[in-house]
Amino acid sequence: MSHILRIENLHVSVEGKAILRGVNLEMKFGETHALMGPNGSGKSTLGLAIAGHPNYEITEGSITLDGEEITEWEADQRARAGIFMAFQRPVAIPGVKTADFLRHATTNVRRPDRKEGEDLIPMREFRKELKSKMEQLKIDSEFARRYVNDGFSGGEMKRAEILTMAMLSPKFSILDETDSGLDADAVKLASASIAEIGRDKMGLLIITHHDKLLEHNPPQFTHVMLGGRIVETGGSELARELHDHGYERIRKTYPDAEAANQEMLGKEEPATV
């Protein structure tokens, strides 16, 4: 497997406001990348732009998957091509059972040419696979009958996202703060699950503030985002430095990006980690 996701000079605006100002990033299948940066620097924006959120307008630059331009693709085309994003705040879909949702999603992603109305993966076959994945991730089997994310705790939502990732087995996964809002035990479980499901089996882009997640999933590359650009890229030692010392050095080293970051935050207090 030698897939490659390449982001070149990406500029993204939301409601006419520029957020990303020229992002370059290249990921290969099997690699783990950490994406770090202070609040408002554009990390989630990058994730959502790659996933194809319609409100995130790409004004310049490109996203290619295995050399194919996907910049203009709808989110579902990207999903079928192997792009996945675990959301920071997944939405609830009342009345739709998790198992039914995942069966439809899994069928579409595995059979990218499937037309609407064509058969889904046979129920028995799907249930069996789902059950084994849920056991592997230590998720209660009752989960499958509950409505998608409806009334889920923070931890349950994040685990449901990891389960979805496991079922869809994408080429590239963006994990947007999959550790936020979790207690220490839940972070540990989520980290171990990501390692088990994703490590070496896909390209991982982990957006996080937490060292636990990276401890279980040591990145080959750490990217630091500030003011809508990736200002520095290093190895796992960079992630450790940022975790231990914060973004002070980064802010000082890249005053232009820091100014852009402050501008994007508007009058809000600059948050630091």
Partner: peptide
């Protein structure tokens, strides 16, 4: 969008 990001077409979503 959430459903589309999981492979559902807009109409299916």
């Amino acid at each position: 969008f959430y459903a589309q990001s999981r492979g559902f077409t807009r109409a299916e979503a």
